[in-house]
Amino acid sequence: MPTFFERKQIVTPGDLLAEGTYVAGENTYKEENKIYASKLGLVEYQDKKVNVVALRAFYIPRLGDTVIGTIVDVGFNGWTVDINSPYLAILRASDVLGRPFRPQQNDLSEVLDVGDLVIAKIIAYDRAHDPQLTVGEPGLGKITRGQVAKITPTKIPRVIGRKGSMVSMIKEKTGCHIILGNNGVILITGKNVEDEQLAVMAIYKIEAESHTSGLTDRIAQMIEKKMQKEELKNESET
């Protein structure tokens, strides 16, 4: 039962990863006892499971995911939301208003208009239907302030870090509140624009260097350096 690559090596679609009683994990497929890669990415062998961590991907909705989306259309009984995925999501008016409504009387664009950002959860999705969203839980709903950063969805786990180490470090250092959408959209709200921008910069740096080691420390250093510079600037001004 041989494996043909080392851990963390880059593989291309069609590469033979393992032969024998292995289980095909993420981004792989099995044919006649052989496991092949189906995406460009880094291999991971976990006991009997073979995974490929994709280097680039698009967001495929999953039940229970928190996503951040943009309203692209206002309909008669709901909104269409772009969630950075091949599929557009639906947000029903009854879900947002929480009461019966009459399309003739209520103007939905007064509640949410085209271009508004929402944090929502996916409550229904399968192959045959577009994903449906809900905002009926605490912390969900229209976004009123903050900044948004967009990264490849596969890199969200890296931004979170091991047991949330990365994201809590950024939160602590910049004093910003960070919400990660599983679809690769991240909302950052802080006391002032400078803090927010610092957090955005850190997140983009993580995305670009996600496959290198010792990243948490380097990001922490970067943030501290920038903070010191800001302070010096503020002091000289006053």
């Binding site: 679609p13 069609g14 497929y29 995406k39 460009l40 680039r56």
Partner: peptide
């Protein structure tokens, strides 16, 4: 296609 992250059997 491969670089776009589309699942493929082979190049």
């Amino acid at each position: 296609l491969a670089d776009a992250g589309i699942p493929m059997r082979d190049l």
